[in-house]
Amino acid sequence: MKVTGVKVTPFAHDLPTRSRSTRAMDAGTSCVVELSSDAGVSGIGVACCTNGAQIDNLVQHVLKGEDPRGIAGLWQRMVNLQAKRTHGEPCHEAIAVLDVALWDLKAKREGQPLWKTLGGSRPRANACASLTDAALDEAQVSAWFERMAHDFGLRAGKLRLGLDPDKDLQRLARTRAALSRAVAPPTLAIDLGQSWPTDATIRNIRDMEQEFDLAWVEGACDSSNVAGLKQISNAISAAVSVGRGLGVGEFLPHFQHRSADVIEIDIGRVGITGALQIADAAFGYELPVTLTAAPGNIHAHLAGVMPSFMSLEVLDPASASRLWASEVRIEDGWAIAGDAPGNGLSVK
């Protein structure tokens, strides 16, 4: 089996809840990537950014004519190519979406769902409803989490805070009440979007912790601020989660300085191959792993092969667009990857 070419189709995404904090969902435009092969099947990936030229370039220079099964080596070649670039925009997202498409091809060749090709034994993954729109009012927050609990059984919720500490407390109360329809007590996590200076972050989280049991905090401060993250972790009960936007090599200081209590992995940034590498390294430190939201919720496939997997982020349980659909469904609080060959993404 050989890669023969690629088709990139941009689209304006029409997500019901527009993201304010998740880089991946923020661009407003996305693209569907179809990697064609000489075996008549295509590998599909969806990227939350439009960089058709970079994708074309990588396919022409690295992937064309290659066997998609050599995916670990191909990923490394693409990363090495990026590392040698001395000008132009970084192409992390382009590499990541091509890696997703390659894994899709590899699984389709075997006629297996991706989760089984990866070596997993069950298609389901513990999921967390994530509300990233900080502009919604309290009634809208309640309504959204009630729907997540009632319709999808989600027992964990994460919400974007960090604007007004008093309002944050009210929003947390709304979230807990809404999710209590599914389970009591629900798991609560927050994303502060790096809004506050370190001392204010500690003060405000401690205030929240007077009333709420927080499982983890994302965006506590800048991902590169190892000392700040460690200081925050030492001062609060909740786990400090780190990783959004980081490349594989950029996790190293957090491992070495124990500045992360939870490792956050985004397949839109590091691909599936990079995600597996980071997850095994995190397992070495016994650090729990979360997976950042992915279009079509295809990150559900990965959970079963990550020994310290904790939770995956769901922005939209019915993640799809006019152009593509996904087999992954959310039921009883689990993301279930399904049995269709590949990652379950299909182009309409």
Partner: peptide, 15 residues
């Protein structure tokens, strides 16, 4: 294979 690959990947993360 699974265990040694975990070791190799953790090593890789550390250069």
């Amino acid at each position: 294979v699974t265990g040694l690959r975990q070791i190799a990947r953790m090593a890789h993360a550390h250069g």
